[in-house]
Amino acid sequence: MRLLGFSAFAAGVALLPVLFPDNYFVTVVGVSAGLHVILAVGLNLLMGYAGQISLGHAAFFGMGAYASAILTTRYAWPSLLAMAAGLLAAGLIAWLLARPILRLRGHYLAMATLGFGIIVHVVMVQATDWTGGPDGMAGIPPLNLLGWEIDSDRRWYGVVAATALLAIWLSLNIVDSRIGRALRAVRGSEFAARMMGIDTTRAKTQVFVVSALFAAFAGGLFAHQQAFVSPDSFNLLVSVELVIMVVLGGMASTFGAACGAIALTLLNEGLVVFEDYEMLIHGALLMTVMIFLPQGLFVGLNRLGRRLWIAVLSRHGSPPQ
């Protein structure tokens, strides 16, 4: 079932540019959606499976992006090496932060991660000599994969789509692994999990680091793809948006998070034509979905579909199982 879903998803992603070659909504919006998928799937590991909220995830996204931006433009590092350095930095900071911060629960954890996000954002704005300040940094070279320059929208679509699928696949595997089971136990009841001999601190730290790595990786791709970074792309609103993606799609479901990411990207892109009405519609839609499908789009629609299917089957005489 899982493999089937994944294959169907991958086939869809691969077919899109063939069906609509050089279409803005496929190549440009698709890249943006793909990056969001990586971010949301990573955050879902932390939120959906370990039950830990983060309102500062944009900070890790930003670290990855700025590492690439600074190292390639100021020190002329090759892009892959810069991305690796970004992963290392974000992973290290996440690891250092995990122990004190994951002792907190619920709203206090939300507050602490939010504070962390704000601190990182302030540094991006103020450390002008390093980060270029609020205007950001331009002129970041394209990604160079061992001599293959990723410099057109279609190539970017290919790279981001492939890595997004890889992220989904990784996430599915993590969830089914020993760590994944430990995490779900933590989510159910941390105390009970500890009683059963699960090293909950270790499990939570691991997932926090993995989730930060996903974000930093997306950040590195983002920097090379946009050729430009500025602090606006990594502020609190972005962190909140990521949380919305995960919840909108359906927590504790990798495909749910991916769907949420794609849905919200398309929504933002589609609503701009409404100009001043954009906010009103955005807010109303968000509320409506969460009120009527509190489990999220993916889970909710799946269930709805199944119910319809059963209704159709029973009308045709074959009893539902």
């Binding site: 807010g283 839609l285 968000l286 509320m287």
Partner: peptide, 16 residues
Amino acid sequence: VSTIIITIGAAIFLRG
């Protein structure tokens, strides 16, 4: 978390 998202939606809506 779902309830929080509803209130965030409400905030965006009111601003709009």
